[in-house]
Design a protein around this nucleic acid. Structure first.
Length: 305
DNA sequence: AGCGAGCCCTGCGCGC
DNA sequence: TGCGCGCAGGGCTCGC
């Protein structure tokens, strides 16, 4: 599901609810959702119960909630965080304390916020490709804030290999362009490589490639510096636009923390548009199998050259 | 280094 | 109506 805009919508909704909130209780309804947690679910529950959450941070498609250190004064920087990845179908929902959990709820948290009072956070995930874990925080190599949401220069160890995303002020565009040019691969594969540039998934890769008129299978070393710059600009544009519209929802699988859908599906020009005319030239959009998924593009506007 | 395949899963919509 | 198949916003690991 969720790519950068959808995860950011979730982070943004979660931030005011969890910042400064204390975890009163944790319920693990399906252990498979803790696949990436090192240790048993009892350990996950024990370490979180009574802990205070400090905020909500995102890099690419990863989300984490730093946990207050043991100091009563809270003067020490946090040492660990609750890390969440939504996978293909994960949701984080804010619910009333007495609301029924849906059948697909995998982990539930009861929180008390100093201002808003008691609330519940449900981690819902149909396919269980998403996960939650407690993870240690490491200093960022460049000393900059690790992600969007808190000015904290430390990152969960599980997220350390993930590149900064293109909306991150500390995203190093020169480094990205250099690494992209040095790669011996094709351009969509590179856009989906989260260790090169993060936050882009199948939808926004196809949308940005369409906007930049680049074929998904174009070898990266044949992409001119100018085209490469245009493509990155289109990536940023499409991510920002999708964010403004609340993300892309095709069905109930993607919703914000209040259960509402996003509107960007109405703005898609390539993804899922096979058989409909290209908005630029009128030629029918084509869908091809690529990396075990669909790639959608205009055969006239987007050619390998 | 890069790539394809396989794996982790559930549920939906479609065609027969 | 029922069933099988293909499809789905991701990512990690392995062997070539």
């Amino acid at each position: 599901m969720p790519e950068l805009p959808e995860v950011e919508v979730v982070r943004h909704g979660l931030e005011p609810a969890v910042t400064g909130a204390r975890i009163d209780a944790v319920e693990v309804l399906d252990e498979r959702s803790l696949r990436r947690h090192v240790g048993p679910s009892e350990d996950f529950i024990e370490r979180l119960t009574g802990a205070t959450l400090l905020g909500a941070v995102r890099r690419g498609k990863f989300l984490w909630l730093p946990i207050a250190g043991p100091s009563v004064l809270g003067a020490e920087p946090p040492q660990e965080a609750l890390v969440a990845h939504l996978g293909m179908s994960g949701q984080v929902l804010l619910r009333d304390v007495d609301a029924e959990a849906s059948a697909l709820t995998r982990v539930r948290f009861a929180l008390t916020h100093p201002v808003h009072g008691p609330l519940r956070v449900d981690f819902v995930d149909q396919r269980i490709f998403g996960s939650m874990a407690i993870d240690g925080l490491l200093p960022t190599p460049d000393g900059a804030a690790a992600g969007y949401g808190m000015p904290l220069a430390s990152i969960p160890s599980q997220v350390a290999h993930i590149a900064r995303d293109p909306l991150d002020p500390a995203f190093d565009e020169r480094l990205y362009r250099r690494r992209l040019a040095a790669k011996r691969t094709t351009v969509k594969r590179a856009l989906l490589d989260q260790t090169l540039i993060s936050g882009i998934g199948n939808i926004y890769a196809d949308e940005a490639l369409w906007a930049a008129r680049v074929h998904y299978d174009q070898p990266t070393e044949t992409l001119s510096a100018r085209k490469s710059g245009e493509l990155l600009a289109e990536v940023r544009t499409v991510l920002r636009r999708a964010l403004v519209e609340g993300g892309t929802s095709f069905d109930a699988q993607y919703v914000n923390v209040n259960g509402a859908s996003g509107y960007f599906s109405h703005s898609l020009r390539a993804y899922g548009q096979q058989g409909t005319p290209c908005a630029r030239c009128g030629r029918l959009i084509v869908r091809e199998q690529f990396m075990n998924r669909g790639s959608h593009f205009c055969p006239r506007c987007q050619r390998i050259r």
